[in-house]
């Protein structure tokens, strides 16, 4: 890092840095700072009361808990999907590849309404599921389904390029040295993929925490059971309680930032360990 200024082949480092800082300030930092400034018009005690109200605390658990779970599920199944897309060829592969991006493009309200229609008690999947006692729409599992849906492309798209670069020779070498299949996967393949998986996890998680549009249709929005934190913010806004809304938003920001920071550190650590950032 220290030598990068001297060894740069391309000129314009200062210009690029300046542009980056201005851009980041305008788009990200200034709006976020406004959230914090607005929330400081509350006294410390008032702020604490707003952000630790039992109903709000219940919503943090639902939003952060289900977002982490959804991101974890996406890591497993996103990896499998990426693996299938990179390693195998099958009819309609191009189509499946294109379908992965659909959750990116679909308006979130469409996602929410479509998922609700399918998973409600009278829907195609909802009916058999409720027959075996699993209620999906209008309960927390419904929120989880929506969050998995919107987060899927992040994992697939971050892992895919790494998998494409990964030579099968490595696996063959491992096999020829006597590693069993599981050992090859765990000791050879997984460490290489881990940083990308963590990035995918972080992106899917970040997207899920902030998601409002699709979740609101399928959640049922019952207090203490299926209310997400963004709904608590909207609720405050509907009552013209801007300050209360920004207080909760500030807590969300800090929690999200902290979690993403941890994930990034973890990613940097694994990258260093597997020696991929050199």
């Amino acid at each position: 890092m220290a030598t990068s200024r001297h060894s740069n082949v391309l000129p314009g480092f200062n210009l690029a840095l300046g542009y980056t800082l201005v851009y980041l300030s305008l788009i990200v930092l200034i709006p976020l700072a406004a959230v914090f400034i607005k929330s400081t018009s509350l006294s410390a005690a008032e702020f604490w009361n707003v952000v630790t109200a039992p109903r709000v605390v219940a919503s943090y658990k639902i939003s952060f808990g289900l977002s982490l779970l959804a991101a974890a599920i996406n890591v497993v199944f996103g990896l499998m999907l990426a693996w299938a897309l990179v390693r195998y060829s099958f009819p309609g592969k191009k189509l499946v590849d294109a379908l992965v991006d659909l959750p990116f493009a679909l308006p979130t309200a469409v996602t929410g309404i479509a998922l609700t229609a399918i998973y409600a008690g009278n829907g195609w999947l909802g009916k058999p599921l409720e027959a075996i006692g699993l209620k999906v729409a209008y309960s927390p599992p419904g929120i989880l389904v929506a969050l998995i849906f919107i987060g899927l492309p992040f994992v697939v798209r971050t892992v895919q390029p790494i998998l494409e670069d990964l030579d099968t020779e490595l696996e063959e070498a491992a096999a020829s040295l006597g590693a069993r299949r599981w050992q090859t996967f765990r000791r050879v393949v997984l460490p290489i993929l881990l940083p990308a998986l963590l990035t995918g996890f972080a992106l899917a998680f970040a997207r899920a925490v902030g998601e409002y549009g699709s979740v609101i249709f399928i959640a049922g929005n019952m207090p203490f059971v299926s209310e997400i934190t963004p709904l608590m913010i909207i609720t405050k806004l509907e009552q013209y309680d801007y300050v209360g809304a920004t207080a909760i938003a500030a807590v969300m920001l800090v929690l999200s930032f902290f979690l993403l920071l941890v994930i990034n550190l973890l990613q940097a650590w694994t990258a260093r360990r597997t020696g991929r950032n050199r």
Partner: peptide, 19 residues
């Protein structure tokens, strides 16, 4: 059982989802 965001959402829940 469900608290929809607005009147139209509640209508959909009742008429389309049979809840």
């Amino acid at each position: 059982p469900v608290l929809d965001g607005g009147g139209r959402g509640a209508t959909t829940t009742f008429t389309q989802r049979d809840i």
